[in-house]
Amino acid sequence: MPSKYVLQADFLTARPLSEVLGRENGFGLLRLLLAISVILAHANPLGMGTSDLGADWSHGQTGLGAVAVAGFFVLSGLLITRSGMRLSTARFLWSRAIRILPGLWACLLLTAFVLAPAVARHEHLLDGFWSHPQGPWEYVRANWSIGVNQWSISGLLAHNPHAGSFNGSIWSLAYEALCYVVVAALAATGLLHRARWVVLGTVAVLYGYTVHLALDYPQLRAPGYAPTGLPDWRLPLLGIINMDMLIPLGLLFGLGAVAELYKTHIRMNGIAALVAFGILVGAVRFGGYLVIGIPALAYLLLWIAAFTPRPLTRIGTKVDLSYGVYIYAFPIQ
């Protein structure tokens, strides 16, 4: 009986995020579930040539895959900001590099020299496969630095709804890495510790611009990557950065960063989490996903991470499979 009342008190009482989000949390579980959600989302377009799972239900605002990527960026914003405040800039960048690059390189090699030849044989296009100007060697060379500069290999998968792409999942890595660079710069200049309002102000500007974009759509049904009209950036190593994608992804990452920087001020409450869930579902279905759905998603994920049952908090603590599931799922599918 006492434990029941304790659980009720935890659910109803508003407590600071810094107090409820300890070392035992649900980040590992959430990342794995989000990665699996991306697999499910890819199943429809890759297997049947239809739209992303949930895209029609949301009236084109978003889909399961896009929501999963959004969740990744929120969680990453919190965890990467925490890491940036704790580590030296050099160690922070090194830890990020060894987290992403070896797995990416292994995936590129497997895709180019195992999966692509198998596809070429299946499509009876082995002749010229190795000498093609966009062959497997060029695929690895073009994509080794995170930025995607070549999607196809030797003209294969022309029937693919993603226009010959062997790995559509890795598009988001350049945006993630750019966020890492921003955090490193803020940490190196001391702004993360001494002027956290800079991060809050930047997120507020991004959110205001996002609202501005959504106002042009009936019932605020703006797509998750609403056209901005802003020119793309071409950055060293990261390749082309599309502003239509950078704005919402930067906002999502920023929401996670703000949660970490202001964790003593943000209150977590079970009733608020239920309200956030209702807002998220309602916004996805009826409109306003960019305006109210994204903040609701961020709050809901943080609440789940804080109150994940203890046995489930062990998922991902020793071996985090989410990154591998994410980058390998598309070529395997």
Rank of each mutant, 00 (worst) to 15 (best):
L220R: 05
L125V: 11
G288Q: 00
S165T: 13
I271S: 08
L297S: 02
L280P: 04
L200S: 04
L17M: 04
L186I: 11
L238E: 03
W303N: 00
V38T: 00
L29T: 06
S76Y: 10
W94K: 12
G49R: 10
V114P: 04
I332M: 11
V74I: 09
S154I: 01
I315H: 09
A187E: 01
I100Y: 04
F277P: 12
L126A: 13
Q134R: 15
Y328W: 14
L32P: 07
T189F: 02
W130V: 02
L93R: 09
L274D: 13
R23P: 14
P227N: 05
L17P: 00
S37R: 04
L251F: 11
H212V: 12
K263F: 12
C179A: 13
R196E: 05
L301G: 01
Y225F: 14
G190Q: 06
Q61L: 00
S58L: 10
Q61F: 07
A296F: 00
W233I: 08
A283L: 13
V38I: 05
V181H: 07
V198E: 15
T313M: 10
G84R: 02
Y299I: 01
T62S: 12
G316K: 12
L213R: 00
L93E: 09
L110K: 08
W233F: 06
A296S: 04
V258E: 02
L249R: 09
I170G: 02
Y180I: 09
A257W: 01
A257D: 04
Y139V: 02
D56A: 15
S83W: 07
Q61H: 08
V148G: 10
Y328A: 12
T228M: 01
A296K: 02
Y225T: 13
H159C: 04
L252N: 12
L109P: 12
A158M: 14
L93K: 06
A195C: 15
Y5M: 15
M85Q: 15
G60H: 05
D52A: 13
L79S: 13
L206F: 06
G287T: 05
L87H: 14
P133L: 03
L40T: 14
G77V: 00
L206C: 12
G316W: 07
W105L: 14
R86P: 05
W130L: 08
F73T: 02
E138C: 12
P117D: 05
A112H: 08
L215V: 13
L7G: 14
L17A: 00
L238I: 08
R31K: 11
I279P: 09
I304F: 00
R194I: 12
I98E: 11
G164T: 05
F277R: 10
T264P: 11
A306G: 03
L78M: 15
Y299Q: 01
F11V: 03
R194E: 14
A90W: 15
H212F: 14
A257V: 03
L192W: 05
K4L: 15
A226G: 08
G155K: 09
G84I: 07
A116Y: 01
G282W: 03
L237A: 08
F166M: 04
F72T: 02
I36Q: 09
V205Q: 06
G250N: 08
V183D: 04
S88F: 06
S58G: 07
Y289H: 04
I294W: 01
L300K: 09
C179H: 13
V67W: 14
L251P: 04
I292N: 13
M245I: 15
